[in-house]
Write a protein that binds this DNA or RNA. Structure first.
Lengths: 232, 232
DNA sequence: GTCTATAGGCTGATAGAC
DNA sequence: GTCTATCAGCCTATAGAC
């Protein structure tokens, strides 16, 4: 868990019937499941309470209302995502491998939180970026930016605008995974077989590595360092 | 206009006060503006009627309810989009140029219907693809598929899975344009300057052309035709 | 075809008992 | 902390006058 402390808040004398943290967690989980699927307006507090197995009044008590719960869900998802992607940078010997790990991390994340991309896309499309998640979004953008810059420093990538690079890469990823359930539902009425996440990731990696290859692509890779601190 | 006939339904004896087609059009336009921004659940029939300058009862009369109007909006947008992109194929001397025109057409479209990408993303993420729009979606996918296949035939592109190619390209495009309003709103609180649509399109084109370049990239391009009818 | 008026359901929030 | 009961507001759809 990310947002709440790990230990279950020691109970003082056994007076309380249940663990209040469990209630919060159940609500967060219900929100994480329902909001991405139906959107904020598509989910009622009744839905959330039922799914969490608690009373709907507790949403207001713990999160100050439906919107509060929504923001908490959003934030916890972004925190986890940003953490996950940030670790990528440590384990990579070079930018080429860093890109590979980044894509793998994204794919892995969609296993644990398969509907996070949808949550993210909805957020970006409707309300706009909520102030609470902006720092984590920027943190993710910093990862891709460092990847692009490092690759250029290492002579593996040509110089590209890191912001454009980020939106092209993350946009394709987010879109693919957010629309995955829709594809699966449409599968019977469609004349092509479902692309797997693995195949897509591989395609994207291939396109990116080739797309970023320096102008003169010879066998020896790390040869020229060129101007080091050059910035436009 | 696309969905309705061009001529304004000849009036028989001047009995009617107004043109009913005008009502339909006003509602479609109101929907095209409001649904992408707030989502289906986020818009009330009152909102729609007010924006269209007509009475809310007319939504049920003309479209059989709010959902009916939504589907009509969706369909008209997809029809226009698919038409627009299909023309790309005619004017292109080769696949390389076809890709360029495809991206340009997409960008142009976002000028006339700036919120279509958001509408599309919402649709794909939530309800799933509506049966009414599926044919047009497939029509768009056929354009990208032909582009990929033609490029390979012409010796300009290496062989890639057209479905993966489609989702990577259109995903990045859709994401970028759908999130454009969110970026603009977040601009003051963000440490980088706004990427322009033009720059993004250029980046994407560059990445795609390089990413699709055949293995052996020599000067002469259209030299080897290889096996022609080979399909897996 | 267009309008007004209204029905009937569901929504999110909260007061108050335990 | 958790629950029950309840409220006021908004929602979509429609009957019926014009």
């Amino acid at each position: 868990m990310v947002t709440s402390l790990a230990r279950p808040s020691r109970r003082k004398k056994g007076r309380e019937r249940r663990d209040p943290d469990a209630t919060r967690r159940a609500l967060l989980e219900a929100g994480a499941r329902l909001f991405p699927e139906k959107g904020f307006d598509g989910v009622s507090v009744e839905d959330l309470a039922t799914r969490a197995g608690i009373n709907k009044a507790l949403i207001s008590y713990h999160f100050g209302g439906k919107r509060g719960l929504y923001v908490a869900v959003l934030e916890s998802a972004f925190v986890e995502m940003a953490e996950r992607l940030r670790t990528v940078e440590d384990g990579a010997p070079d930018a080429r491998e860093g890109l590979h790990l980044f894509l793998r991390a994204f794919e892995d994340m969609t296993r644990g939180r398969p509907d996070f991309p949808a949550l993210f896309l909805r957020e970006a499309v409707s309300t706009g970026i909520h102030p609470a998640v902006l720092p984590h979004l920027l943190s993710i953008m910093r990862v891709t930016r460092r990847l692009a810059e490092r690759g250029h420093r290492e002579g593996l990538f040509r110089r590209v605008d890191p912001v454009l690079f980020h939106f092209a890469l993350v946009g394709a990823l987010g879109f693919f995974f957010a629309t995955e359930p829709a594809r699966r539902r449409a599968a019977p009425h469609v004349p092509f077989k479902q692309p797997t996440a693995q195949a897509f990731i591989h395609h994207l990696e291939e396109m990116t590595v080739r797309g970023l290859a320096p102008e003169a692509s010879s066998e020896t890779k790390k040869k020229s360092k060129k101007r080091k601190g050059a910035r436009s």
